[in-house]
Computed example of a mutant assay.
Amino acid sequence: MTTSPSVAVITGASSGIGAVYAERFAARGYDLLLVARREDRLRELAAKLESLHGINVQTLTADLAKESGMQAVEKSLRSNERISVLVNNAGVAHLAPFTAGSAELHQADIALNITALTRLSLAALTRFQAQNSGTLINVASVVSLHARAGSSVYSGTKGYVLNFTRGLQEEVAGTNVKIQAVLPAMTATEIWEVSGVSMENLPPAAIMTTENLVDAALAGLDQGEAVTIPPLHDLAKWEAYESARLAVFESCLTGVPAPRYQK
Results as ranks from 00 to 15, higher is better:
E193D: 15
A13L: 06
R260V: 14
I229C: 08
A111Q: 05
V87C: 00
A96P: 04
K75C: 05
T175P: 00
L86M: 03
A173L: 10
A188S: 09
T189S: 03
T118R: 09
L33K: 13
V57Q: 13
N113D: 02
A130D: 12
T61G: 07
S141Q: 12
Q131E: 15
E74W: 02
E81T: 15
R127V: 06
V227Q: 07
E211M: 04
T254F: 06
S155T: 06
L45H: 13
V153I: 15
D234R: 15
T3S: 08
T187E: 02
I83N: 03
A206S: 14
H106N: 03
A140G: 12
Q262D: 08
M1C: 08
E193L: 10
P231F: 09
I10C: 02
A236I: 06
A36W: 03
G101D: 08
Q169W: 10
G29K: 05
T210L: 07
L232S: 07
F164P: 02
I110H: 00
A26S: 14
T115V: 14
E211Q: 14
Q107L: 11
D222R: 11
N176F: 02
V7I: 15
M70H: 06
Y21S: 01
S79Y: 03
S79W: 04
A147I: 11
I114H: 02
V227M: 06
E74K: 08
N80Q: 09
L77K: 03
R166C: 05
G91F: 01
L213A: 04
E211H: 13
I114R: 05
A240S: 14
R38N: 09
K66E: 12
G101W: 12
A116F: 00
K75V: 04
T2Q: 12
L34C: 03
A130Q: 15
D234K: 15
A247N: 11
Q71G: 02
L32G: 04
T135C: 10
Q58Y: 08
S251Q: 14
L52K: 15
R245A: 13
A46K: 11
A140C: 12
N80E: 15
E225V: 00
N163H: 14
G12Y: 00
R24D: 06
A19T: 06
S102H: 07
S243C: 07
K66V: 07
A216W: 13
L77V: 11
P230G: 02
L33H: 12
V172E: 03
S152W: 07
A123L: 01
N88I: 02
P184G: 02
S79G: 01
Y261V: 05
P204D: 11
Q180C: 01
L122F: 10
G224T: 15
V35A: 00
V35P: 00
W238G: 02
A46G: 07
E239W: 07
T2I: 13
Y261E: 06
T187Y: 01
K66F: 05
R245H: 12
E74G: 07
G159H: 09
I110Y: 04
Q58R: 15
E39C: 00
F25T: 10
F98Q: 05
A93S: 15
M186N: 08
E81N: 11
N56I: 06
L42V: 03
T187R: 01
L183C: 09
L120S: 03
P184I: 07
I179S: 04
S251W: 05
A236F: 01
E200Y: 00
V20A: 02
K237H: 09
V20F: 05
